[in-house]
Design a protein around this nucleic acid. Structure first.
Lengths: 118, 118
DNA sequence: TTAAAATGATACGGGTCCGTAACGAACTGG
DNA sequence: CCAGTTCGTTACGGACCCGTATCATTTTAA
């Protein structure tokens, strides 16, 4: 059983959730940063700069800079790979987990209100 | 009947859709721009700079600049209000409609594949 | 008629992000 | 060992966005 959404519902969900994120002035991540963050938190490790760049189809400096910003916000962490010290492993943080959890709640709440509030 | 989403499904939907948007290198709008665009296309006119600023809880220059960029991308249009020439009315464009339609399709497709692909 | 209010745009200084190119550090294979 | 490869980072010039303050235009009201 799949999640059935009409196009109007999909747009309303996208709109309402974004509006809430914009209003809350949460750190305000870009689409690339959101994608990186959720990849790290949803998919099994290890996550490397090169791997993330390939997955998103962007250049490596994009990933490096996104990790810089999100590291400053304490959403992710970087560590050298002890096995191959050229690699950098992207790791989760407590703060990042909370952020992702809040995001999930926001999306869920907006989805639940979709058909009652239209 | 509401749209039931588990938190895991919500996150996967958010991740998958963002990933697709990042990969496609569609104009790559910010969260604020997306919110403005969808507000204009989902809610009944008229839409003014002041109204959008109040709705998003941001300053007016934010809206002006977003309309500048999205105008350059031909996603929205500006017109003076003939009734009160201080106002600017934000209008939809053909290109913007297509963009919104594609976005809706992307979200719907990702939602439909949620439970088959997990 | 004129002062005040409202609207959207602009100037400014500061920050972030972009892609290309170059770089140092670490591994690999001959 | 040592040249070549791989990895992540940094430097650079340019573009965009931010919030505050200010501006011109238009409307309102005394």
């Amino acid at each position: 059983m799949a999640v059935e959404l009409t196009t109007a519902e999909a747009l309303k969900l996208w709109h309402d959730t974004h509006l809430e994120l914009v209003r809350d002035t949460e750190p305000d991540l870009s689409a690339r940063q959101i994608t990186i963050l959720l990849t790290v938190y949803l998919e099994p490790p290890p996550h490397t700069v090169r791997g993330l760049a390939a997955k998103l189809r962007v250049t490596k400096p994009v990933i490096t800079r996104a990790l810089d910003s999100m590291g400053r916000m304490d959403l992710v962490n970087r560590r050298r790979d002890p096995q191959d010290r050229r690699n950098v492993l992207v790791q989760r943080t407590v703060n990042g987990s909370l952020f992702v959890e809040r995001l999930a709640d926001t999306v869920c709440q907006r989805a639940a209100r979709l058909r009652t509030m239209m």
